[in-house]
């Protein structure tokens, strides 16, 4: 009796927009390969219109998400970690292929990514106490400054840390109530698209995170110029494109997180302690005055 190797079931990778898994409206896909050039899957090649739809989804849920209690947001981020923990092996395999690292290194990156969700989950109900202030004004007024999310954030995810880098830019944005449109690593989008499947089962309201695969050079400009996007994180772009996007972002005075050296570097840059900088950079400070008198 001869045994026939079982033919594996391949996954059709799809975008994650508004809590749903659409194909690109353009109908385009592109080939994704591992570091050695072996075919892994086809990924949707998102278009400007996909970016537009993603912004609409992100805007729609901004009110409810930013209005949710910090405790609730914290629990949902923690839930993401819980869901990921159960799929460590799947992500380790995807990361190994995507980042071109050993299984051991890939596992370490997945673990760090899970721990990063936990780290940010805990920040949800603490950031206002760290970034807010009671201001002792010289007059009979009660005066409080509180941080609020900036709004819809376009994120160009790190290119060479397809999962840990991605989590490191999404989590600090959404934990405070922002919603995001993420352009995944062009070269290695599969862990990002898989993350969408995890987010969809983590009680995260649809639209809080929208994940597009495709070309940064194609999706960046419409997002940077989009009048209904409030901030842009350029972690995954460099050189002329970064300058072009920052310039376009000036049109509606988007907050711009410039790429830092290392953001796009290979290696273990994203394993470092993330600090609070990125989270604080996507907050507005609102100061409320009220008189005190009988």
């Amino acid at each position: 009796m001869s045994t026939v190797d079982r033919l594996s079931v391949l996954k059709t990778y799809k975008l994650f927009v508004g809590g749903k898994f659409p194909r690109s409206e353009s109908g385009r896909v592109y080939e994704v390969t591992d570091a050695k050039g072996a075919w892994l899957a086809n990924a949707p090649l998102s278009s400007r219109k996909d970016a537009r739809d993603a912004v609409v989804a992100a805007r729609k849920v901004f009110g409810p998400w930013s209005g949710a209690t910090a405790y609730n947001r914290g629990q949902i981020l923690y839930r993401v970690a819980e869901m990921l923990e159960g799929r460590r092996e799947q992500f380790a395999a995807e990361v190994a292929a995507a980042d071109g690292v050993s299984a051991k290194k890939a596992a370490a990156r997945v673990d760090a990514a899970i721990d990063r969700w936990v780290w940010y989950a805990g920040w949800s109900d603490k950031v206002a106490q760290v970034a807010g202030a009671a201001n002792p004004v010289a007059g009979p007024y009660f005066n409080l400054s509180t941080p609020e999310p900036t709004g819809v954030v376009a994120v160009l995810a790190p290119t060479d840390s397809a999962f840990l880098g991605l989590v490191s830019v999404i989590a600090p944005a959404i934990v405070t109530g922002n919603t995001v449109v993420v352009v995944a690593s062009e070269r290695a989008p599969l862990p990002a698209l898989s993350l969408g499947e995890v987010l969809a089962t983590s009680d995260l309201p649809g639209g809080v995170v929208n994940i597009l695969s495709g070309r940064a050079a194609e999706l960046g400009p419409p997002l940077a110029a989009h009048q209904d996007v409030n901030a842009i994180d350029l972690a995954g772009v460099a050189g002329e494109l970064a300058v072009e996007l920052e310039r376009a972002a000036a049109d509606n005075l988007k907050r711009v997180l410039r790429p830092q050296p290392g953001d796009t570097a290979k290696g273990d840059h994203w394993l470092a302690d993330p600090g609070t900088e990125r989270m604080l950079s996507l907050l507005e400070t609102k100061t409320v005055w009220h008189p005190m008198g009988v």
Binding site: G139, Y141, N143, G151, N252, L253, K286, T287, W289, H290
Partner: peptide
């Protein structure tokens, strides 16, 4: 909005952060 005056308006103080959302700057 970056500053909300409730039952008052146009009050300023060096201890009180001032600045805008959206196209009012950063």
């Amino acid at each position: 909005a970056g500053i909300v005056w409730s039952n008052t308006f146009n009050k300023f103080d060096p201890t009180s952060p001032f600045g805008g959302y959206k196209e009012s700057g950063y």
